[in-house]
Design a protein around this nucleic acid. Sequence first.
DNA 1: TTCTTGTCACCTAGGTGTTAATAT
DNA 2: ATATTAACACCTAGGTGACAAGAA
Lengths: 229, 229
Amino acid sequence: SVQLEMKALWDEFNQLGTEMIVTKAGRRMFPTFQVKIFGMDPMADYMLLMDFVPVDDKRYRQGAFPSLRYAFHSSSWLVAGKADPATPGRVHYHPDSPAKGAQWMKQIVSFDKLKLTNNLLDDNGHIILNSMHRYQPRFHVVYVDPRKDSEKYAEENFKTFVFEETRFTAVTAYQNHRITQLKIASNPFAKGFRDCDPEDWPRNHRPGALPLMSAFARSRNPVSSPAHQ
Amino acid sequence: SVQLEMKALWDEFNQLGTEMIVTKAGRRMFPTFQVKIFGMDPMADYMLLMDFVPVDDKRYRQGAFPSLRYAFHSSSWLVAGKADPATPGRVHYHPDSPAKGAQWMKQIVSFDKLKLTNNLLDDNGHIILNSMHRYQPRFHVVYVDPRKDSEKYAEENFKTFVFEETRFTAVTAYQNHRITQLKIASNPFAKGFRDCDPEDWPRNHRPGALPLMSAFARSRNPVSSPAHQ
DNA sequence: TTCTTGTCACCTAGGTGTTAATAT
DNA sequence: ATATTAACACCTAGGTGACAAGAA
């Protein structure tokens, strides 16, 4: 069995509609997909990998308020038509693969080397996704069968795990300001964009404490405006 | 067979008498021990590891010129007596171990995670060495025998490679200024202590930028003084 | 109008020798 | 007198969203 790490954070993002940046050079996911694994044969070899499947066959576009400047996106997504032709569905093998079950189980398995790109011609082995499309990450565990004719048992030698809270929309720039703010608040690498006391998040986060936001951040992130709900 | 990478650099250090810093927290080696491997069975599993054996049973101390300030070490080593009791001889497994021969051979194998410490109570798995003692790094290739009673064949299932040009003296602070200068000149992480950068000078040199600590560094590094040859 | 690209300042994370203070 | 330690400035290496400019 498999347990998703940082589930609370994933849930928080998922509630807003998770977005993941894709770039030509490749961008990591945040949150990072991390799992704890239980019940492997400690002595057997396993390959761990991920892939990404379209959630639907739709292309999305951003809803906008006519009276607001371009910079103000709504947080709602509109269907813009049929999905672009699917790209070759690449997979990402965890770089430690193959390894023994004991190795995989003794600590959290982190896919922090996985990168997302929108470059159809990418030759860095990154995961290729279409921007403005929704994806479901999948996690696969493959048992390395020591038998000679192991190909015949391929069907029974792997198991797939899907966590719906890790669904996201691939984007080249964030569309929902609340997603941006949650990324800034929770990703250590974005600390430079935080307005509030660096000590308060995430270790000492108190629900009652109001984050100190600059006027600019407030104007771009109307958290208390019901118009954007 | 095994080929030492950066042999020219190792030779240059060895000619001066290589020194490696040891610290309580653990310090990487520079140059890093890196090899190219040939002739493995591509499909077989191998463990790669290193250990460090005393070159002799002597403890060293630094020779000094009575008329010079403390800061000026001579570049000669004197025997100070018998070696301290040998520490438990730890080994460092390459973190990718075990892996297939094909994997090991397809690129340079780098031991850049290996760290040296003088802390006898170290519990980070670093290599424990005595300061002011000389050591010979050794590289071992262990064939992972698939047979049940593989322990019986341990003797024939590993091969050891020794490169004498990688010998060094463990120190807590550099003793030979020429070693210091060669480290600064060749280790990218010490770029901040360089007086000039022959590579980038024409391209990135700004007339206004003063070289860092150059006057002080020069006063401590009388490279052209024959007294220190 | 909407989406994409490239550059940037600002971070995390950690590897350098220097230096002053301390230990032996 | 020598050797060790810990704090430090200065790097490498690379992950962030912001922003302006470009593309569709």
